[in-house]
């Protein structure tokens, strides 16, 4: 029985734990060079939006699991000819793909795909909604260093409004017992954050005060032409994580960034390359949690349902 990974919001702590444990195990196996049973399935890698790192990471994960990847990107697809997403998904279904990894610029698109695709659908980032495997990679990276997420203060800094990484991380950290803070300017913060699991801070110093973890978000340069921030320089002055600002956080703070980094904007070199930075570990762990996600989706550990005995009874009666 297959299942989907569409969002962290819908997972319970046990499921998150399962995924993180699987990720840790896969990491061990890969590092030790152990043989991993081949899944022998075909996974479509559907990228309706440019992505390098997530795509490479998913392909690596599939490679280690012995899954065959089939690539599908907008440039080579029929979408430009006006095909609807539903028709694309149905086509791939009857191309006998077993699972889909999907990135899409529109929030909720993978959920729509899952309605027309019988096998697992994994969200590799949808609009501003969620990016579940990035949050899992971040959580694994933090757990390797802090042991647990319980009780940690996690500050998510930057363009929260437009960030799927912020949403997935907030849900994951909160569900696993961390205190989440959203830090950023009002123009880049959701106008109504009441249903999101975290407290909002509009200034950096108080937002990252005593934080155990800082997740810095990428600032898209378009935000300036959209009129959401005055200037990149002013933004950097107020919200850049750098050597000085890191002093407000806990001494053993971990600094994360989903990449790609705008050096000199959201991070300075000292922070990005400093000893608190775990950014490269995030990238590597991305592979292992994506292995976990693929495995978890293809093999739900629930025991198979017993054969339909009761039906025979009914016929008799």
């Amino acid at each position: 029985m297959a299942r989907n990974l569409l969002s962290i919001r819908h997972l319970n702590p046990d499921q998150i734990e399962e995924l993180l444990t699987l990720g840790r195990e896969f990491k061990q196996w890969v590092v030790e060079g152990k043989e991993i049973a081949r899944l022998n399935r075909v996974v479509g890698q559907l990228f309706f939006e440019n992505s390098t790192r997530t795509r490479v990471s998913f392909e690596q994960a599939a490679h280690y699991l012995g899954l065959k990847s089939v690539n599908f990107s907008t440039t080579g697809s029929s979408l430009k000819k006006g095909e609807t997403l539903k028709d694309t998904i149905l086509t791939l279904r009857y191309e006998r793909l077993n699972g889909l990894v999907m990135r899409h610029p529109s929030s909720g698109a993978p959920a729509l795909a899952a309605r027309y695709f019988p096998g697992p659908v994994l969200n590799a980032g949808d609009g501003r909604h969620e990016h579940p495997t990035q949050a899992l990679a971040d959580a694994l990276t933090i757990r390797e260093r802090k042991g647990s997420l319980e009780g940690l203060t996690v500050a998510i800094v930057g363009d929260v409004e437009h960030s799927r990484v912020a949403r997935s991380n907030a849900w994951l950290m909160a569900k696993m017992g961390a205190n989440v803070r959203f830090v950023g300017p009002r123009t880049l913060m959701p106008a109504h954050s009441g249903l999101l699991p975290g407290d909002v801070f509009y200034d950096l110093e108080s937002g990252i005060k005593d934080a155990d973890v800082i997740i810095a978000l990428r600032l898209q340069r378009e935000r300036m032409s959209d009129g959401l921030i005055g200037s990149i320089g002013e933004y950097a002055r107020q919200y850049q994580i750098n050597r000085d600002k890191l002093r407000y956080a806990a001494p053993d703070v971990l600094l994360l960034h989903p990449g790609p980094i705008n050096r000199g904007i959201e991070l300075d070199d000292a922070a990005a390359d400093g000893e608190q930075s775990v950014i490269t570990a995030q990238v590597e762990n991305g592979i292992f949690v994506r292995m976990a996600a693929l495995y978890w989706c293809f093999y739900e550990p629930e025991p198979p349902k017993p054969a339909p005995k009761s039906r025979a009874k009914k016929v008799k009666a």
């Binding site: 929030s107 501003r128 909604h129 409004e161 949403r167 959701p190 106008a191 109504h192 009441g194 249903l195």
Partner: peptide, 15 residues
């Protein structure tokens, strides 16, 4: 609607 739901769903809101 630009509100708590649009913030969760990551859908651009209409204020």
């Amino acid at each position: 609607n630009e509100g708590a739901m649009s913030a969760v769903l990551g859908v651009k809101g209409i204020p």
